[in-house]
Structures are given as structure tokens and as C-alpha cells.
Amino acid sequence: MGRIIMFITQKKLLKDFQIQRPRLILPILVVSVVVLLVIYTTQDISTLIYRNYEIKDRSTAYNMGILLNKIFVEDVLLSSSKPPPGRTIFFHETTCYHPVTLFNVMNLTARQACAIESAASNNPNFQVFLLFACPTYRPLSGGQKLLIDAIESYKNVQFRQLNISNYARDTPIEDWIKKGDLLNSGFPMQHTADLLRLISLYRFGGIYLDMDVVVLRSLENVPLNYVGAHDNITLGNAVISLEPTGKGHEIAELFLRDYETNYNGKAYVKNEPALVTRVVKNLCGNDLVKLMQEGRISCQGLTVFNSTAFYPLGWPQWKHYTEPKYLEETMAITKDFYLIHLWNKASYKGLIKVGSSTALGIYAENHCPRVYTAAGDYF
């Protein structure tokens, strides 16, 4: 069985890399053998995320990335170009598509790519970092490469990978990560994503955005330290902004400590909006709901926007973005907002035909035109 897996892995790597130079084939095969020898046969995605750089021979794989014209994405902590504190917009990708080999090929959807392009185009003075939770390499051909090329045509877009153990070092969550509770998560990708956004903001400050948004306006002049309400009860975690120092850094620490205290590996949402709501309610007091109803408020230096800023339509209304019959109504509702949130868990199958008269199509054409062009027939 091991020989069969090894053969399939080697064949897959050769196909993905499309290496034409024979002298490079042997090193690639050696790397794949080394990696296979250290992976548990029953390893799942959460273990992959956890262990990706703890392999002794990981430096070999990293050097291979340099040798192969930087096919592999750099580690964010080892790179000479790091996120500028307080001047970075973060996105995170925790899917990890190749758990057998530990090598994750970039595999973004057109809508994810649109989120990145819209952030970069509307915020040219901010750096936009997409962080992968696994060792990742770039696609060398096909539609995926067209999307990646469209994003990287913006000089303020950076791709990096990270190792969660290293990334959590010197943060309040470091010891908890070492305990390995995240390995037992029933929703490893989601819970890792929930945690990484908090670590990024603790380390660098700036703005975190989910990858199912389209940014419609600049966020550069909005003072850092803010979140937005889903409704009059719950705050969202798809948009979080914190200063790298001072009160913002203190709030980031509160978020991380709450994550550890209230972590539930079996619950899908307890570590998401509920976390932000708990922490901010403690900052604002018991009048948070009333204050949210009144609009934008400030609690100990943290601004809370009501739903008109980032979540103009709730998840049950996601079809308003994708169906032509809602076009005029949706455009009227959302035209002055900072961004739209597409609620990917509900909307990911609701693809639209490129060029269709939908709110999503019009916003994509205006705010992520290069990705929209590269998407093909459907977006």
C-alpha cells in the first residue's frame, strides 16, 4: 500500500510542477519520499495544519522552493518582506488540498480571488497578505494560474504560508497550541481560521477580512480598532480591525484568551461571532445591544459599526446578490457600504454567469475586474 501511495504522490507532483528539466526530477522525488516517511497513514487535515513545519527535513522542501524559481510560497515569519504593522489587510486560507504530500497547491475560487483584488484595488496604500496554513506552491498552468496572475498583478498583494505552532509563538495562545486541543476539532479548517485571524491581528494589527467579501470602498482612512454588527444582537468576525499597539493590541489579547477559555472543538460557531460578541460586550457593558441599535459606537477605544457597514444583508438574503430580480433593490441598499459579505457557507453553489445583470456581477466587474475576466464563464 505504501508503495502505491508513494507512486501516486510522485506522479501527482510531477504533473503539478510540470518540470521539463530532467535534473530536477530526482530532488522532487527525494522530497516526496522524505515527506511520506514522516506522515501518519491516518493523518487528517488538522494534523497537517499542525505539523507542517515540524518535520526535520522541511528546510529541504523550502530550499527546493527557492531552487524551483520560488514555486513554493515563503513562510511569513522567514520572509524579508513582512506585513507592515497596522497597514496590512489579512486573508487566510486553511483548506489544505493535499494532505498526503503536505504540499498544498493554490486553489482559490474566483470569488476568493475577487475578495483579494477588491481589497488591493480599493486600498493601494495597504499591503494585502494572503496567508496559507500549509506549505503551498503556485499553479503553473490552467485557470487557477490565471486567477493567481490576476491577483499578483497588484503590487500590494503578497502570498505567504505559516506554521501555526511557530505563528503562535510569543503570543497568549502559545501554550494552548502546544497542548494540541485544536487537533481534536470537529471543524479543523473553520476553527483554525477563527484562531489565525486573531493571531495575525495580535502580531501585526491591521484589518482582517473573510474571503467571501467584495470590498466596495477604501478602508484606509477608517481609524483602526473596529468590528461590525450582524444585527442588533450579534457582532461579526468577518471584519475585524485592531491597532498593532495600545488598546488594539490589548483587545487582540482579550480575543486570544477568550478563544482558549471558551474553545469548543465540537461547536461550529462558538469560536466565531460569539467570541467577538462576548469580548466586546465586556468592553461596552450590558448596553451593547441598545448601543448597536443606535449606530456606530465606541467602547474603550473600539468602534462598533451597526449592520449597515459590513453586513447589509443577512445570510438568508444571499440570493439578493446572485439573482437578477433583486438587482435594483440590492444595489440601492448596498451602494454606500464598505463591503458586501456573500455568506459563502450558503451561497457557494449559487454561481452567476459572467456578464449577468446581478448585483454580484456588477460589483465584481467594478471592484475585481481582472479576476472577473479570468474567471471564465461562471463566477
Rank of each mutant, 00 (worst) to 15 (best):
Trp343Lys: 13
Asn344Thr: 04
Ala252Ile: 03
Ile177Tyr: 08
Lys247Met: 08
Cys114Gly: 14
Ile240Asn: 04
Ala359Glu: 00
Asp212Met: 11
His320Met: 15
Val100Ile: 10
Ala115Met: 08
Thr41Ala: 04
Leu48Met: 06
Gly228Ile: 04
Thr109Leu: 13
Ser241Tyr: 03
Tyr326Ala: 11
Ser46Tyr: 01
Asn271Cys: 14
Tyr226Leu: 05
Lys290Leu: 14
Asn237Ser: 12
Cys368Leu: 14
Leu67His: 07
Arg160Trp: 05
Lys325Glu: 10
Gln190Asp: 03
Cys134Leu: 13
Arg58Met: 04
Tyr50Thr: 03
Gly206Lys: 14
Phe337Cys: 11
Thr9Arg: 02
Ile164Tyr: 13
Pro188Ile: 08
Ser59Val: 12
Gly314Cys: 01
Tyr363Ile: 04
Leu14His: 01
Tyr263Lys: 12
Leu183Val: 04
Phe126Tyr: 13
Arg197Gly: 10
Asp175Tyr: 15
Ile45Trp: 03
Glu253Thr: 10
Leu147Asp: 07
Ile207Pro: 01
Thr192Ser: 12
Val31Asp: 00
Glu272Phe: 12
Arg138Lys: 13
Glu152Gln: 15
Phe337Ser: 11
Leu24Trp: 00
Tyr268Pro: 02
Ile8Asn: 02
Gln112Pro: 00
Thr60His: 03
Leu162Arg: 07
Ser32Trp: 01
Thr373Leu: 15
Ala364Lys: 03
Met292Arg: 02
Val227Met: 10
Arg51Met: 08
Ser218Glu: 05
Asn166Phe: 05
Leu235Ala: 10
Gly206Ser: 13
Gly376Glu: 08
